[in-house]
């Protein structure tokens, strides 16, 4: 069996969709806020993969530029999100996202 098959954009898009689905499912299923953040990172990575594969398909640098900005925004988001998690979990030391329900007014 030869591996001379060409890997088109469809393969990358399918992989991206699968990664996104796993991330979204994990976000809905898990209760630990840190793991929920990791699932958000998974979804961002899936979007990045789709960006880059479309950018290569179109021979356009816009896809890679978008991924750069997504990286920066993801870093900022993780910093703020983890700060919120630290601020909440320091006072309610059970690692569950349900603790944040006290924010409800």
């Amino acid at each position: 069996m030869t591996f001379a098959m060409a890997i088109g954009t469809e393969y990358y898009l399918a992989l991206s969709a699968l990664l996104f689905a796993i991330g979204a499912g994990g976000l809905l299923v898990r209760r630990n806020p840190l793991i929920m953040f990791m699932c958000i990172e998974l979804m961002l990575n899936a979007a990045n993969l789709a960006f880059v594969s479309f950018g290569k398909e179109m021979s356009d640098l816009g896809g890679q530029m978008s991924v750069l900005f997504v990286l920066v925004v993801a870093a900022a988001e993780v910093v703020i999100g983890l700060a919120i998690v630290v601020a909440v979990m320091r006072r309610r030391p059970k690692a569950s996202i349900d603790e944040v329900s006290v924010l409800r007014g």
Binding site: L15, F37, E41, N48, L49, G55, Q64, V67, V78, L82
Partner: peptide, 26 residues
């Protein structure tokens, strides 16, 4: 995959920023 898609700079940034900074922050 980024290397496979000829996005070499993004592959390096992915490893440095994500694996080197964000996961360490986690």
């Amino acid at each position: 995959h980024f290397i496979n898609l000829e996005a070499y700079f993004l592959a390096a940034v992915q490893v440095i920023v994500y694996a080197g900074a964000i996961v360490i922050l986690f």
